[in-house]
Amino acid sequence: MKNTLKVQRAIHELTQEELANKIGVSRQTINSIEKNRYVPSTVLALKLSAIFKISVNDFFTLEEND
């Protein structure tokens, strides 16, 4: 599953640390999501979507092998 977290973060001028603090996770978690090593839970996906004010569907897209 791909995501646009890094792009959204750049648009909103947020560092990984700042974003992590906003949603109450570690910087490692944000880094792993950005690098597609970790697929977040629905709760975390909704928190991210609320922060960046875009829908979860625009945020995450399925890949062929999903």
Partner: peptide
């Protein structure tokens, strides 16, 4: 727990 214990940890 770790210092920040979230779902990823």
């Amino acid at each position: 727990k770790d210092k920040i214990e979230d779902e990823f940890i």
